[in-house]
């Protein structure tokens, strides 16, 4: 699904990653851990094509991401749903419109997708908040809305960057269960998190693997949880 072949990345001030080779197979569930500033967000950006590696290559669905045209990249982004740490909403649009944004930009008929949107709002527990604006949402609501937006096009891969970073434990568990549900539907899930308690809690829910960033390498952290 997503493969990294001897990938290196240099910010200009030195190498952040040296020689990373790994694969995220279809239907897998991975956590990415590492200390603050270790490059978790950068690694995720490499995976969804927001950054290009300075060395090696990244294959997404079999295609070299660096060789993708801008339109190819737009198509790739529709197959990889991303939940950003800061959610990245359009503040002038209500929640429902923000969640439907991937439908809008891909030219889908919103009238036909209305039921899907309603179902999705219910799934993330935001049915009553559909007309609210992003600034009116709590941290947990924002993260769930961001997750709904990430999955509305039913992407093959879901990438989440510290999705539980600003929410309480109960909400973290709720969000984790949504991600596990998606994985059980066959979606590949990659979550960057420094929250080890969340990772341990996931053990009872899903067969997840942990990738750890250390010494400019991204390595599998031992056995399955």
């Amino acid at each position: 699904m997503i493969e990294l072949e001897q990938v290196g990345f240099d910010y200009g001030g030195g190498a952040l990653f040296g020689d990373v080779s790994l694969s995220l197979p279809a239907g897998s569930f991975h956590f990415l851990t590492g200390p603050s500033g270790s490059g978790k967000t950068t690694f995720l950006k490499l995976c969804y094509g927001a950054l290009n590696p300075t060395k090696g290559r990244i294959l997404a669905f079999g295609d070299d991401v660096a060789a993708a045209t801008r339109d190819d990249m737009a198509t790739l982004r529709r197959r990889i749903g991303v939940v950003h740490q800061d959610c990245r909403f359009l503040d002038h649009l209500p929640v429902a419109d923000n969640i439907a944004l991937p439908l809008t930009v891909s030219g889908r008929d919103l009238a036909q997708e209305q039921q899907n949107l309603t179902d999705l709002l219910g799934w993330v527990g935001l049915s009553e908040r559909a007309d609210a604006y992003p600034a009116e949402l709590s941290g947990g609501e924002r993260q769930r809305a961001a997750l709904a937006r990430a999955v509305i096009l039913s992407p093959d891969v879901i990438i989440a960057d510290e999705p539980t970073g600003n929410i309480d434990w109960d909400m973290s568990q709720r969000l984790l269960r949504l991600l596990v549900d998606l994985n059980s539907m066959g979606k590949t899930v990659l979550i960057a998190s420094h929250d080890m308690s969340l990772i341990r809690a996931a053990k009872s829910e899903v067969q997840a693997r942990v990738l750890r960033i250390s010494n400019k390498q991204v390595q599998l952290a031992g056995a399955d949880l």
Binding site: A50, R70, D71, A74, T75, R77, R78, V82, H84, R88, F89, L90, L101, P102, V105, S106, R149, L153
Partner: peptide
């Protein structure tokens, strides 16, 4: 940036 991230073409 948001539009590009959710798959909008130029």
């Amino acid at each position: 940036e948001v539009l590009r991230l959710v798959g909008a073409e130029d």
